[in-house]
Design a protein around this nucleic acid. Structure first.
Length: 668
DNA sequence: CGGGCGTGTCATGTC
DNA sequence: TAGACATGACACGCC
């Protein structure tokens, strides 16, 4: 989640930088407050509404089973499973880091910059020059420039390595030389080629952009964003004489003739969703430097790792748009982000696949997306089972908590009751007489399931109330409280016998054995008395070895019976908790899926903004005559080193086709 | 009559 | 070490 948060945060901020550079105001607060709750949650942390409750731990602390080590293990296990499930769900959807690199290059108003200065590859030539060179030695340059793009981009020369002697001698190679050229009015005469003129326009206001950039930099510093300072150097463009221009100046040997700015923006780290930027840098066929109008950063960031060069034109401009020449770039520009939007659609398709794969109905997934705006939550049927479960859980918890103390309380109560029913006189009592009168059934749980915790277990058996709390079945009736027994006069002899038979049938085997062996105290005493009192009780009687053996067996079996009941109850509680965990997981899964859909939507919005940015940038490009470039003839192309090239559409389309083929080959 | 279910019991292990 | 406890396995009875 942290990585996702970082991803989103960086991406959002950097996208803001990008948009701000072209004058589009982006209010980050709106993203953080109302518009995109998931973004807000990721960046600022989960809200309490999404914070999961540790039901297991709650249960462990609130009821009596917290002390059960096995239950704790189970809970930990399933908690870990739940977290793992969420992590896995998150892993399926990676919001890409949006890394923005852009810079402005101001063209010398005097046009004093010449293009004759030797440079490696960044050739900002006039439009005519572009067109001229395009058709000449494209094939020859392709391999060379490919190699150059694959090299370390920090070495600016590598971005556009020296190709053929004439051209390199003629055109500047990299942005460093370009950026140093602007402030320097004293360029060599040979740098007059106006290489940047096709890209530059006089309409830009560098000071506004400077201010925007400073604001953005301050924001980034505050948020400790990992923004490569080189990016800022690239981004920043200062007029000559500006004190800040020392770091952001243009190369003295770069031919820049007009005070025109070009923003170079890139979205990095879009490893999955942003397939717009293919990672295939080295394979990108790039025309020779003379055919391109690249702007290469003086200090390239690790764009290769985040995204590779991609022919923006190929993605942005469908080939069928080639014929539609339009001199006024801008609103009339074709949709440059068709590929992006298609990618978004692919994402959602993959989301549907995921939904199917993980058991989600695609219809449900689509409904999730439909419910995005309302944010009314998933209409999971979470009311039936959870409530019932929780209620049962609550009851079971309470009962279990009481059961945890049932042993002691029961033993104490038994002890007290035994004190009532037991006396030294009982030794002389006729056990056979006592049988018919009492007959306490320790197995009342047969009638009232799980009621062994109940201190008055026979309360659920009205017909046995008269023997309730009487654990002295083998005591004489005279020793019993007369209030517990109906008046003898009211008892018919037949009913008495029936009752005796009934109670006799309800006696356990051990009770029968105890009676047969003439054990002088109740099984309850045998079972529930503390060991000291139990031993003391045994010492008061002269018991045979068989009797002692039976008494020990009765005690052992009785305790084991209670232990088995507790064990089964715990098992039942565990099952119920597992059911509840499953429902919790389903809710979490639905929530994550909903968030995923929301992320996709926000991603789509970002892509649309990138589209607008592209149009904006392209629309501001002007040739040396101040005319805009036709989107049908030129396109912007991204390279792996973060530079943006203005290339002829034919070349862009060719590269786009080549890029399309590669993924297909890889799939094979 | 067979299967599910609840329960009791035994054996075993743990504390 | 004895006792208490937990639990799997089995048997038994009931439905």
């Amino acid at each position: 989640m942290l990585s996702l948060k970082k991803y989103l945060t960086e991406g959002l901020l950097q996208f803001t930088i990008l948009l701000s550079l072209i004058g589009v105001r982006v209010d980050v607060d709106t993203y953080l407050t109302s518009q995109l709750p998931p973004l807000r949650e990721i960046i600022l942390g989960p809200s309490s509404a999404y914070t999961q409750t540790q039901f297991h731990n709650l249960r462990n602390t609130l009821d009596g089973y917290g002390i059960h080590p096995k239950s704790i293990d189970l809970d930990n296990y399933f908690t870990a499973r739940r977290l793992l499930s969420q992590v896995r769900a998150l892993d399926r959807f990676q919001v890409p880091t949006t890394e923005v690199n852009a810079w402005l290059v101001h063209r010398d108003p005097e046009g004093s910059v010449s293009g004759s200065q030797p440079s490696s590859g960044l050739a900002l030539e006039s439009s005519s020059g572009l067109q001229d060179v395009t058709g000449t030695d494209n094939g020859v340059r392709e391999s060379e420039t490919e190699q150059g793009f694959s090299e370390d981009l920090e070495d600016l020369g590598a971005v556009a390595p020296p190709v053929s002697g004439d051209l390199t001698k003629e055109f500047p190679a990299d942005i460093s030389s370009l950026t140093e050229a602007v402030p320097s009015e004293s360029e060599p005469p040979g740098l007059q080629n106006n290489l940047l003129s096709p890209l530059l326009t006089g309409t830009e206001s560098p000071f506004d952009l400077e201010q925007q950039w400073q604001d953005l930099m301050s924001i980034m510093e505050m948020q400790a964003m990992e923004v490569n300072t080189s990016t800022s150097e690239i981004l920043y463009s200062a007029p000559p004489g500006d004190p800040l221009s020392a770091n952001y100046s243009l190369a003295p040997n770069t031919p820049i003739n007009q005070n025109v700015s070009l923003h170079q923006a890139s979205l990095g780290g879009c490893s999955q969703d942003f397939s717009l930027f293919s990672p295939e840098v080295e394979s990108l066929p790039v025309a020779d430097s003379s055919t391109l109008l690249p702007l290469v950063p003086s200090n390239s960031t690790n764009l290769n790792s985040t995204f590779g060069s991609t022919n923006l034109a190929g993605l942005f401009f469908p080939p069928q748009l080639n014929g539609t020449a339009n001199d006024t770039a801008g609103p009339e520009l074709p949709d440059p982000l068709g590929g992006l939007l298609d990618e978004a659609m692919l994402d959602e398709i993959s989301l549907m696949d995921l939904a199917i794969e993980e058991g989600f109905n695609p219809v449900q997934a689509s409904q999730l997306e439909e419910e995005f705006d309302s944010d009314s939550g998933l209409s999971l049927d979470s009311s039936h089972s959870p409530s019932s479960l929780s209620s049962s859980e609550g009851s079971s918890s309470s009962s279990s908590s009481s059961s945890s103390s049932s042993s002691s309380s029961a033993s104490s109560s038994f002890s007290e009751e035994g004190a009532v029913g037991y006396s030294s006189d009982s030794e002389t009592l006729d056990l056979e007489e006592a049988e018919g009168a009492v007959g306490y059934q320790p197995e009342y749980s047969k009638f009232c399931r799980m009621s062994y915790q109940d201190p008055s277990p026979l309360s659920c058996l009205p017909y046995l109330e008269h023997v309730g709390h009487n654990h002295t079945y083998n005591m004489a009736p005279s020793a019993l409280d007369s209030a517990d027994l109906p008046p003898p006069s009211t008892l018919k002899k037949g009913s008495k016998e029936k009752q005796s038979d009934f109670l006799d049938k309800q006696m356990s085997r051990d009770e029968h054995r105890a009676r047969a062996m003439k054990i002088p105290f109740t099984n309850d005493k045998i079972i529930n008395l503390p060991v000291e009192e139990f031993n003391e009780l045994l010492s008061k009687y002269q018991l045979s070895e068989a009797q002692l053996s039976l008494i020990r067996d009765i005690r052992r079996r009785g305790k084991n019976k209670m232990a088995a009941q507790n064990c089964r109850k715990r098992k039942l509680d565990t099952i119920l908790n597992l059911e509840r965990d499953v429902e919790d997981l389903q809710r979490d899964k639905a929530r994550l899926l909903r968030e995923k859909v929301e992320f996709l939507r926000s991603l789509r919005q970002m892509k649309q903004k990138v589209q607008s940015l592209y149009q904006e940038v392209f629309g501001r490009l002007r040739d040396e005559n101040g005319r805009p470039y036709s989107p049908s003839q030129y396109a912007l192309q991204y390279t792996g080193d973060g530079s943006v090239l203005l290339i002829p559409r034919a070349l862009a389309d060719q590269q786009a086709r080549r890029q399309e083929r590669k993924p297909k080959d890889r799939r094979k």
